[in-house]
Nucleic acid binder design. Structure first.
Length: 891
RNA sequence: GCGCGCUUAGCUCAGUGGUAGAGCACAUCCUUCACACGGAUGGGGUCGCAGGUUCGAACCCUGCAGCGCGCACCA
């Protein structure tokens, strides 16, 4: 052993061991290993992102699983990497470009802009990776992947080409979710419905054939009025049946539009008449198709009015135009009223502005292997934890909509489709494109450009980022077309750890892609983490400023402290309310362990082996048995992914059992006055228990576990505790019941005596003497320990002790113990104290008697429960008798 | 509107039928030679409400309320 410094300094220690593990190649996975495989792929963080608490929780869990699997003798691959995060990254670079150079991406052109993004990525891309390393993540960094790596890009293109050929990918003109800020289409999942306080405008359109007669309509979006091509009513609505088929006047620009009947219209809502704007509303678009209506687009891509026929609105921002349009209607006498109204508006997930339903040409995917993917979760081949998420998954799988996979961005995987130059215009505007067009030879879909590339133009769009992420498990393990040893050994992965918020974005899609392109499910278990909130229950967010920087926390409390603190409060199924106090506790825990080892070293720095346990005191056997119990309990908790419980078990064992009881009980054995045998038995027990405890702790607090294991010589030179196999046999190989009950009796008695001292205001005095009456025969050698534990000068055993009247006494598991106090005896005080105790016990007795007096209970309850109850009653009664005698003696 | 989850001590949470728990916070005491990032002792809960099942309910069932989260084309 080497001597420990006075204070534990996690920062330096953590860095030291992380470097040592890297040097020792502890994290690297060997596909040729004969050991059972265990694998996890990291949910790739955004390449330019920075670590937040969600990452900490998520990755600490993966690290725990990976480290535990190594201890269980498995060959572990934890595969790391980052995601190019199309919109987010491009937006960052565009903002920087705008702020620093006042330029847009179009000013630079596609190639130059992409160069800038790569520069940005190279500059900032490893920040989060460094942060994960700081946290202690044991990823196999030699296999780090990026979704825009050349090899990975090949996979993405390949998947596109295959699905296109299969007829599952097609291009079409559809109404999509358009982000007027990012200027791209989004998938349905990227739209966040948010309740908004808005206004419902009631207005009236004049009937063309009956001047002075009006049809009343309600809308939240008067600014799209110029795109109206009809007014729809419900065919079952008697109020409007007379209008169907007639024309009404659209106020501006002036036009006559038909009144049509469509079931979609809700009779109850508003006026019951709906203006139809097929270009700017999904439902209207569908109605438009059903009734063959014209589509008039009156908005620009960035959300401004595009309607030269209405010069006063033309060019205005959509929200300004809304007010202006309402004002115009009012001027024209067509606005009836405006009501306050709360409705759900879709917001762009990234740009945080209302999305605009917009007609545009996009690429869509019909999902492959839907049935296999749905079944895999339904039948338990893939196990969701908590299980209830399976229902959410199933619901989504049953209602799949085609996925809009094209994005009007530059940063990402460009669509691998080329159009023949001669046919370019026609193809660009074609209503749809699919395999049939490919077969005509007018478009090319493939991994490479056509040989005569000068005659072809590539589709400018890139793919949704998730279209690359959904390939993550197998595309990170193998290059396209390669027969990968890694894939064979480690796919499917064992566990996936991720947040439930990306169950659709990522998890569901990975399962489908796994079946389609790897021929199997991508993972066997999915553990959904808690969502971290602040103490008010709000989500962590930059704008609220309620998101603590994990790096700061690690500086303050150490990575181990952060990991442990967070894990200890992580509930199984629900959200987690973060409190820095828990991280502080984590740090305190590390300190407690460290100091226990320092204490050990005060008695020498030689490692001591265990001797013959038959001669060991009960405290030693007790703590070793508890360690065995801890190891067994942890095994069960790991099997059920009960991470918070594991932390709690570790904490309770070390703090309360090991330090609180065992170390206090054995302090005498470590003093100079102790015999060599006693000393060695104690040191041997300490070393055996601590060595195993540190191993069990290692997945949660890997750095301090390594530091102490090394410094205490619990691992051999050149060995790491992080990779050391868990012991196969328990420390105590025999029935320890007797020793444990003796130890427990001493601990319990000591607590009672401390209590007695407090009650008689002698808590601080260490010279008090206790007298044990009617002691068990084994007690004599343990009185010194009992004295130490309760802070007494001396404890005598005297079976015939005749206590002076009024001597304070306590009933303990080892017998009546008196606290003789010359000159301080107060008969009345002692009577009151004993009476109080009797009252308490009487209540318990009543409870027991009530139960046992109930015939139904005796008849119906299981016999062992009845027996238990009887024993309890006998126990209470015995105490009652004893206390009664004591009380009588005081009279 | 449909679905899911939560409601236990001041706070954060354990506890899936048999004597209500932990950590923190609080109060009092202790600078005792591992640790004040510590130790000792203590106060504090009719387990959201109302029914039901059961010998027995925090736990199972039903209803209700409050909070949160998904999904959904009501303009």
């Amino acid at each position: 052993m080497s001597e420990l410094a006075k204070a534990y300094e996690p920062q330096a220690v953590e860095a030291k061991w992380y470097a040592a593990w890297l040097d020792g190649k502890c994290f690297e996975a060997d596909p040729s290993s004969a050991k059972e495989a265990y694998s996890i792929v990291i949910p790739p963080p955004n390449v330019t992102g920075i670590l937040h608490l969600g990452h900490v929780l998520n990755n600490a869990l993966q690290d725990i699983l990976a480290r535990r699997a190594r201890q269980e003798g498995k060959e572990v691959l934890w595969l790391p990497g980052t995601d190019h995060a199309g919109i987010a990254t491009q937006a960052k670079v565009e903002r920087e470009l705008r702020e620093q150079e006042g330029k847009t991406r179009r000013d630079l052109g596609r190639d130059e802009f992409l160069k800038r993004v790569w520069d940005f990525k190279n500059k900032h891309g490893d920040i989060i990776i460094k942060q994960l390393k700081r946290l202690g993540c044991s990823c196999d960094w030699s296999r780090e992947r990026f979704t825009m790596d050349e090899a990975y890009t090949k996979w993405v293109s390949h998947v596109f080409v295959e699905l296109f050929k299969e007829g599952l990918i097609y291009r079409g003109k559809r109404i999509v979710n358009w982000c007027p800020v990012s200027l791209t289409a989004l998938s349905d999942e990227e739209v966040i419905m948010t309740p908004q306080r808005s206004k419902l405008y009631f207005m009236k359109y004049e009937l063309a054939d009956a001047p002075g007669e009006y049809l009343e309509i309600s809308t939240t979006r008067p600014e799209t009025l110029m795109g109206d091509v009809a007014v729809a009513v419900n065919p079952k609505d008697p109020r409007f049946s007379k209008y169907i088929g007639r024309m009404v006047k659209r106020p501006f620009p002036h036009a006559e539009i038909p009144v049509i009947a469509d079931d979609h219209v809700d009779i109850e809502f508003g006026t019951g008449a709906l203006k139809i704007t097929p270009a700017h509303d999904k439902a209207d678009f569908e109605i438009g198709i059903r009734h063959h209506l014209e589509i008039i687009d009156v908005l620009t891509p960035d959300g401004h009015v595009n309607c030269p026929d209405c010069p006063d609105l033309h060019g205005l921002d959509r929200f300004i135009a809304r007010k202006k349009a309402a004002a115009k209607l009012e001027e024209m006498g067509l606005l009836i009223k405006v009501e306050e109204y709360e409705n759900n508006v879709g917001f762009s997930e990234r740009a945080h502005v209302p999305i605009e339903p917009r007609i545009s040409m996009q690429w869509f995917l019909k999902y492959p292997c839907v049935k296999e993917a749905a079944d895999a979760v339904a039948n338990g081949d893939i196990q969701f934890r908590p299980e209830r998420w399976a229902k959410t998954y199933a619901h989504w799988m049953e209602n799949l909509q085609d996925w809009c996979i094209s994005r009007q961005l530059w940063w990402g995987h460009q669509i691998p489709v080329w159009y023949h130059k001669e046919k370019l215009d026609a193809l660009k505007n074609a209503e749809s494109l699919d395999m049939s067009d490919f077969e005509k030879g007018e478009i090319h879909v493939g991994l490479e450009a056509p040989a005569d590339s000068e005659n072809w133009v590539r589709d400018e769009d890139v793919m949704d980022t998730w279209f690359s992420s959904w390939l993550w498990p197998f595309a990170t393990m193998s290059d396209l077309g390669e027969d990968s040893a890694t894939l064979k050994k480690f796919h499917p992965t064992s566990d996936l750890v991720t947040g439930p918020d990306i169950i659709f974005f990522w998890v569901a899609r990975m399962i489908m892609a796994g079946f389609r392109f790897a021929g199997e499910l991508p993972f066997k278990n999915v553990f959904f983490t808690s969502i971290i909130r602040d103490l008010q229950g709000r989500k962590m967010s930059k704008s609220l400023g309620n998101s603590p920087d994990p790096i700061d926390l690690m500086e303050k409390y150490g990575a181990d402290g952060l990991r442990f603190g967070l894990l200890r409060i992580a509930p199984v199924g629900s959200d987690l309310r973060f409190d820095e106090v828990s991280v502080e506790e984590g740090r305190n825990f590390a300190n407690k362990i460290y100091n226990a080892c320092r204490f050990r070293q005060m008695a020498g720095t030689e490692l001591v082996e265990l001797g013959d346990l038959a001669n060991y005191p009960p405290y030693h056997i007790d703590i070793m048995a508890k360690l065995d119990e801890l190891a067994a309990n942890l095994k069960g908790s790991y099997a059920e992914y009960r991470f918070g419980e594991i932390a709690q078990l570790l904490y309770d064992f070390l703090w309360n059992e090991f330090c609180g009881k065992f170390l206090e009980a054995v302090k005498l054995d470590l003093r100079e006055t102790a015999t060599v045998e006693a000393r060695n038995a104690t040191l041997g027990t300490f070393d055996a228990v601590m060595a195993r405890f540190l191993q069990l702790l290692s997945p949660y607090m890997p750095h301090i576990a390594e530091e102490l294991s090394q410094r205490m010589s619990y691992v051999k030179e050149g060995e790491f505790v992080m990779t050391k196999a868990l012991p196969a046999t328990p420390l105590v190989g025999f029935d320890a019941t007797e020793a444990r009950s003796r130890a427990e009796a001493i601990y319990e008695s000591a607590a009672r005596l401390r209590n007695l001292k407090i009650e008689y205001n002698v808590a601080t005095r260490k010279d008090v003497r206790f007298v044990v009456k009617a002691a068990a025969s084994w007690l004599a050698p343990e009185t010194k320990v009992l004295a130490l534990l309760c802070g007494a000068g001396q404890i005598d055993i005297d079976a015939s002790y005749d206590a002076p009247k009024g001597t304070p006494v306590s009933l303990t598991p080892v017998g009546e113990i008196y606290l003789p106090m010359e000159g301080l005896i107060d008969v009345e005080a002692e009577r009151i104290r004993i009476s109080k105790e009797i009252e308490k016990i009487k209540i318990e007795v009543k409870k027991c008697e009530g139960k046992l007096g109930n015939a139904s209970f005796i008849d119906r309850a299981p016999p062992e429960v009845v027996e238990q109850e009887k024993a309890r009653l006998a126990d209470w009664n015995a105490k009652l008798v004893q206390l009664g005698e004591m009380l009588a003696a005081l009279a």
